[in-house]
């Protein structure tokens, strides 16, 4: 039997991508603390994880920060995407597009450092945002995710047929009504995807949060990062398994959802 080269490539490629993650999940069920011995199936690391107050509190903080920043970032990103695709050329449009997309290439350490410097200066003058609470992290994460969301929604806005919007305008609908009745339903899958991407990016960020977060706003990645410095710990395996399950289910659901939405949207456009 002749084996096609492409199947061999795919096999090893996906093995490389998935085997390490798979092993992390397997060893979350190991009874022993060490990966050297497999001493039987156990859920005890999950129990330890759930009863760890530091991790629980950090998870809540992270979820709060991620949902607030993703929501604001999606609203701002939708506005920016509309400005980029639907406005006639205006003075400084190139600068606007450049400034919106620039955070994509900003090294995380530089972004974290510069935002902290800004927050310290702002606190001195306006006494806001203070180091306590998670306002600083929320603002930083909006800045981080805004460009990703804008790019995603802008791509969808560029794709679809504008004659629908023009027809509605010709028939006397106001621009605001056109947006809510025509544009928004069509780009809705992209908005959902943008929100999810912003949520995931915020939930994942450790560098920027470490710079700007005060003592009361430790996020989950910060806790994980500090425990990774001490090497292997089965609790992290258990956390990884939970995170991976939740995120992959979320991605698959959103993929199915946007696939269906997109096919109906494509029927219109």
């Amino acid at each position: 039997m002749r084996v096609r080269w492409s199947n061999v490539v795919l096999f090893f490629g996906y093995l490389f991508l998935y085997l390490p993650l798979f092993l992390v999940v397997i060893y979350s069920f190991n009874e022993s603390r060490f990966v050297s011995t497999w001493s039987g199936f156990s859920m005890k690391w999950y129990k330890a994880l759930i009863s760890n107050p530091i991790i629980l509190r950090a998870t809540l903080t992270s979820l709060k920060v991620a949902s607030i920043s993703a929501t604001i970032s999606t609203i701002l990103g939708t506005i920016a995407a509309i400005v980029i695709t639907r406005f006639r050329r205006f003075r400084g449009k190139t600068v606007f597009v450049g400034a919106i997309t620039a955070p994509l290439v900003m090294p995380e350490v530089v972004m974290g450092l510069s935002l902290l410097m800004l927050f310290i200066g702002m606190e001195k003058f306006f006494e806001w945002p203070t180091g306590r609470g998670s306002t600083r992290v929320v603002i930083a994460h909006i800045t981080l995710t805004l460009s990703y969301v804008t790019m995603l929604i802008q791509a969808r806005l560029q794709d679809f047929d504008r004659s629908l919007e023009e027809a509605a305008l010709d028939l006397g609908a106001s621009p605001i009504k056109v947006f809510f009745v025509i544009t928004l339903p069509i780009i809705f899958p992209a908005i959902v995807n943008g929100w999810l991407l912003a949520f995931a990016l915020s939930l994942d960020d450790v560098v920027i949060a470490s710079f700007v977060a005060g003592p009361g706003a430790t996020t989950l990645p910060m806790v994980v990062f500090s425990s990774l410095r001490f090497g292997i710990s089965p609790e992290i395996n258990a956390l990884a398994a939970i995170l991976m399950t939740v995120l992959s289910v979320g991605v698959i659901v959103s993929a199915v959802f946007s696939y269906k939405k997109k096919s109906t949207a494509d029927d219109y456009s």
Binding site: A200, D204, L228, I236, L239, A240, G250, V251
Partner: peptide, 9 residues
């Protein structure tokens, strides 16, 4: 989409 830190871990 899975956590960056987990992939390093």
């Amino acid at each position: 989409w899975t956590s960056f830190l987990i992939r390093v871990y």
